[in-house]
Design a binder for these strands. Structure first.
Lengths: 344, 344
DNA sequence: CTGAAAGCGCTTACAG
DNA sequence: CTGAAAGCGCTTACAG
């Protein structure tokens, strides 16, 4: 268990930082009266030293580890897979998980100082955030209290020093597109999810890389993003690209639910899948298996991602640095009935 | 709630007892070196003054309630709905929820004394159990520690004094069956889930009541239960009843996932739905909407059930008795494309 | 068994 | 912005 670099108290940190104890106290409690530079240096040392408040120390030594999990409403296979992976790993490791359901795009509005105080007070030792935006100052609020954070597929570009776990999105995007190219498609659209999400960007660039390798010029009209990864994004995106004078013969959707939206729109227009239009989804969730036709999809190891994220967080809590601030687990292209060579 | 006589600290108690602060400290920490009489007198005063350790004060004044939630792996719309309902209500009420994923049929194997001790130690104040078996002795372990328990759809007959929340399963079962009878069906099968689950029994008896009202004799061959509410139960059940010399023209399934299994088996046999076979599901989850044809289903207000269960638990924690040990929320029959009059 | 004294870890109020 | 000083709540070590 926790290498409790037990000495860590205000005095040791103050000595290490070359400041007085009151100054460290101010940083920990987010009080005014500390210069930005000093504050940052001390925060760094606090995180390194694994400092914990007396309250936190008490619960810590009392045994079980408890962490916070922030996740959006559980709607799709994605969240289900990740959640089950986390909870199964937690059960196996005797970890208690406090689950908060907060709309991902709204987490950055939360008062992180308040949240982190509550966590420290109730003895929680780390935070796992699924598809949540986390600002650098929020991240600092947690680390300042010695609470490590791990994120899974954040919706924004995460702060550089934040540990994140996800899938090989770039490779997955490339594999999906190469599959379509291999079938003979040349007019391939990309329908992305939340535009600024790291994972969306990576999938898009995997798609672009595959086109480039095949010497197919990319077309701006064929590339669209939504504000989420939901069905409605697929409906709207499909409408837009299918209305083009030269519509695509294949669509790579950045999630299975987007792909389902595309499928619906195709059905509404009497466009046959896969004869007239090939569709590839992303995630490898059960909707892909169960749709008609079943969707070719880039499967993410969602449960493993959840488990790995928790494992990584526990390592951080334990004072170990992760080998890398970013861990990616392999995706796998699963070919089903929604892709075929283009006709004509 | 506790009148927080906030001044209470070691010094005030020491003054009240006419002893020194160190003596009070020894009593609080169960250290030796205090006479029995002094110890008792001080303990009395501590209780009266409502003293809490700095740790306890911190958590107390932070004022948050924390509860445990036991739920199986989140696989189907049922668990998703209930979970989202609980988490949304918790978020709105500033409640922390510690979620443990334990296979429902295995919860009765858990050491409840151990569990309850851990809960009490970490300041958790109650337990919510979804579709979990809970033995009377387990229930006693929680109540003995002052931890109230609320269950949602337990798989066994719950102990009499256990508070439970669920849907009007009997009325729902009757409504589903009356709908089929109203369409002209006479040969109607019931494919149940976990046989001993209270909710399964109630749905079955609702089905029987509808048959009785319509003066249709019930047929043992048409009534089957499984060991769970999953697709496989629907596949096996459909095989059995469709192989009968006189197969049913309609099937009422005790869950949407069972109904999906029935639909698959019908498709495999080239039996058209709803022309040759009508199917009604239960739960009103998204698979019912999205299947082909979309399923007629008895919708449960799953989110409301989750929220109501948490609300009831919070009342119990607050010392209020619920008006009734059993609360049922209304089901609603949603007619879609999987039911039609029988042909011939 | 009891408590004065020293000490620990932290915070607050304030002088520079 | 920074820290010396005082203080708070509690514990520990030890003298009586």
């Amino acid at each position: 268990m926790a290498t409790d670099r037990s000495g860590a108290n205000l005095a040791t940190i103050a000595a290490a930082a070359g400041v007085s104890v009151p100054t460290v106290s101010k940083v920990i409690n987010n009080r005014a009266g500390v210069s930005a530079g000093t504050r940052e240096r001390i925060q760094q040392l606090i995180a390194e030293a694994g400092y914990h408040s007396p309250q936190g120390r008490r619960v810590r030594t009392s045994g079980r580890t408890m962490i916070d999990l922030v996740i959006g409403e559980v709607k799709h296979g994605y969240a289900i897979g990740v959640l089950n992976g986390i909870l199964a790993y937690a059960h196996g490791s005797d970890i208690d998980v406090v689950v908060s359901s907060i709309e991902p795009a709204k987490f950055h509005l939360t008062d992180a100082d308040d949240w982190a105080d509550r966590m420290a007070d109730s003895g929680r030792q780390g935070l796992l955030a699924v598809t949540s935006q986390l600002t650098p100052s929020q991240h600092a609020a947690f680390t300042a209290r010695g609470l490590p954070v791990v994120v899974i597929d954040p919706l924004n570009t995460p702060p550089a020093d934040l540990t994140s776990v996800g899938a090989t999105n770039w490779a997955g995007g490339r594999a999906a597109t190469e599959h379509l190219i291999g079938l003979g498609h040349r007019r391939i659209a990309y329908l992305g999810g939340h535009e600024r999400a790291e994972c969306n960007q990576a999938r898009l660039h995997g798609y672009l890389a595959a086109l480039m390798s095949a010497e197919i010029p990319s077309t701006a009209d064929y590339i669209r993003s939504g504000s989420n990864f939901d069905r409605t994004t697929g409906l709207a995106g499909a409408r837009a690209v299918l209305d083009l004078p030269e519509p695509p013969t294949a669509i790579f959707a950045a999630s299975d639910t987007i792909a389902i939206g595309v499928l619906e729109e195709a059905r509404a227009r009497g466009i046959r899948v896969p004869e007239d239009l090939s569709i590839v989804g992303f995630d490898g969730t059960s909707v892909a298996e169960q749709s008609l036709p079943p969707l070719t999809s880039v499967a993410q190891p969602l449960q493993d991602i959840g488990a790995m994220a928790l494992r990584t967080l526990l390592h951080l809590i334990d004072g170990q640095r992760p080998p890398s601030p970013r861990v990616e687990l392999a995706t796998e292209l699963v070919v089903r009935g929604s892709t075929a060579p283009p006709q004509g």
